[in-house]
Design a protein around this nucleic acid. Sequence first.
DNA 1: ATGGTTGATCGTCAA
Length: 255
Amino acid sequence: MKIATWNVNSVRVRLPHVLDWLEQHQPDVLCLQELKCEASGFPWEALQAAGYHAYVAGQKAYNGVALLGRCPGEDVGMGMESFADTQQRVIAATFGDVRIVSVYCPNGEALTSAKYAYKLAWFDGLSDYLRLALKRWPQLVVAGDYNIAPHDDDVYDPKAWAGEVLCSEAERAKFEALLDLGLVDCFRSLYPQQRDSFSWWHYRVNAFKRNMGLRIDHVLASDALKSRLHECCIDLAPRGLERPSDHAPVMAEFR
DNA sequence: ATGGTTGATCGTCAA
């Protein structure tokens, strides 16, 4: 079972990239983030024609998450009971024997911002949500844009980014707290020494060409799925296309 | 210190 995640930064602008990528890689489930449209503006027909069932939590202009499945998803849930939120950042569904959650975690903007306090509180809500989800669905995958680089090895210039948003100790502690629930970072568990592998690069200053990136998009799998984890890779190709998302897709395969 | 890039929307906000 191939499960992928991709922050597309507008699903309508990126639709051609998404369709090409689905055809090339044939994931069983693709988690999308930053749709930047309401459900009424979502490209339902094109994705259905590509062979995917879509489940969408959208809103006007900002945020928005979706799940695309080769097979229908069941028990679809939007948002988190543990955290009242006007922003659409979470959607979950069961595909076969695996519960899959697509998450778009808050960016935080800067440590002094009110959005940073919201981010930290939001992660506490996510922990509570996932603790309950793991009890109900031991085979759980949580994939998305976490807006956290868990370790200095996930940052192109750790000294420059030290203490900055996406890399601060408080944010990293929130990420660790997720792992402590019984989740594993698929990429890092397979490649514990890997450096210079990133999933996001700024649009500015030719950051992608210079590989000035951060690894902030992650596929987390529950301990019950860990033994089935076979591969996890970041596909750099879409980031090099014309008019790309600023994020690359990350895909994990379970057998 | 400033500005640089993109998307939604149409003067800014968000990333």
